[in-house]
Write a protein that binds this DNA or RNA. Structure first.
Lengths: 245, 245
DNA sequence: GAAAAAAATCGTCATTTACCGTAAAATTGC
DNA sequence: GCAATTTTACGGTAAATGACGATTTTTTTC
């Protein structure tokens, strides 16, 4: 079996498993639909059902979707993404070897063409703290992580793997206290091309020092809400693609 | 999260995913019920339903089990195994790091106490070909693999990982042509304590040579059918345990 | 080859799913 | 702040699930 098909299958199984085991399959379906950046209408169209059906699941009116429904759902969101160049699936592919728990992932995607760090920062109202000289470097995707959740479930080698999986990409940490704990895990060559912190309570001096030492650009996003930032990223993502929605 | 719970969760997700994505959820449910060595009645009892319900799924009268059903099913078979000492779950645990496709696995289990190679061979009418001097070594479990399937989907490093995952255990290869292809993959220190071939069409001289060189006991089972052999293993497995069925 | 164990069959029934369509509410874009 | 987009809410319907239990068939065991 070609490796792409294998990744696809593993991702499919993971999503399907998560939905079936969830206490609220609908919520989980929504999580994945959103992870794939699909409005209910598009998904509904692809499934050949009316949008209210999707809503009925997600809002919990239908509490126990049958395996057929789950299968159809999973295969459709993956196929739709593949038809658009596989931005999400490919981004997941680099995570798959890593066994990162998906619940820490808020958003993930590749860009269809590389964009500069500057462009990304402009889009999410980012203020650069260190590494100004690298603003013109190109990045090819991003990963948004719930930091407080990640600190709960990830060991320091877990963080390391996260860094490795985001090589040439932006790692966006939301829900950050000081930024210190994730950054200290950084050692080794392979690491993200950009760190963005969001929702920092009190920025730690050490955090900046670490970023300097490791020569990774570090920025803070001034967006009010996480949701807002995700939406901006989504727009950016779409701009790079030839998606026809 | 403790590592045991993590393994449990991953296994659960994998099974649930497989069922939901299957073209025949019922067949897949049966596969897993059998993997856990549970008769329909016991499973039905644990689920608090009548046995015909299980049969209705497995035979396909109910074609699209709801997520609730899948969840209950998966959690029940795993919990039942854990209550019996986790013979199956633990055996899977050593596979989990390895990403072995479960469709090549026909049967897998730990023993509650180690048994000698001799004992195992007696139980499945095994004839030792090489490594007679090691008959008194203890083994702690077994893995039965469909070789023709494995040759299809496993690379040679895949086989290597299989060998590593069966350290101190018996690796039972059924559906074998010559035995050559799997054995040539063997290099390195970590490997099963015993190879058993079943259904060999024409034993290759090289196969025996390889086993000799690597000093791994090699045997052939003279059981007529695979099913028969699996049943014998099942009995053996039960003897080592304090299961109260 | 009979007894026991396990699995399959199937009629039946209450509950839910899977679906539509429409109207209302919420969210987002400028 | 208004238009556009997206999501919910909900009444309704046919089909399927989820369940039982009695009976038959198949498989295993001694």
């Amino acid at each position: 079996m070609p490796v792409a098909a294998q990744v696809r299958q593993r991702l499919a199984r993971r999503i399907a498993g998560e939905i079936s085991l969830s206490d609220s399959p609908g919520r989980t379906m929504r999580k994945w639909r959103e992870m794939f950046h699909l409005p209910q209408i598009h998904l509904a169209e692809a499934l050949g059902v009316s949008p209210s059906v999707i809503s009925d699941y997600e809002s919990g009116r239908r509490q126990s979707p049958g395996s057929k429904t789950i299968k159809r759902f999973v295969e459709t969101i993956i196929t739709l993404d593949e038809q658009n160049g596989g931005q999400v699936v490919n981004a997941f592919q680099r995570m798959m070897g890593v066994e990162i728990p998906t619940n820490i992932i808020l958003d993930i995607s590749e860009f269809s063409q590389g964009i500069t760090i500057k462009q990304l920062l402009e889009s999410i109202r980012g203020q650069i703290l260190t590494g100004e000289e690298l603003l013109d470097r190109e990045i090819f995707g991003y990963l948004t992580v719930d930091t407080s959740e990640a600190l709960d479930v990830l060991s320091s080698t877990g963080f390391l793997k996260l860094f490795e999986a985001t090589e040439d990409r932006a790692l966006i940490l939301v829900n950050v206290l000081t930024g210190r704990s994730p950054l200290v895990a950084m050692k080794g060559e392979i690491k993200p091309s950009l760190f963005v912190l969001h929702g920092v309570e009190q920025l730690d001096y050490l955090t900046i020092e670490l970023a300097k030492r490791e020569q990774v650009p570090l920025a803070i996003s001034r967006m009010e809400s996480v949701g807002g930032m995700l939406r901006r990223l989504h727009v950016l993502r779409k701009q790079t693609s030839n998606e026809r929605h």
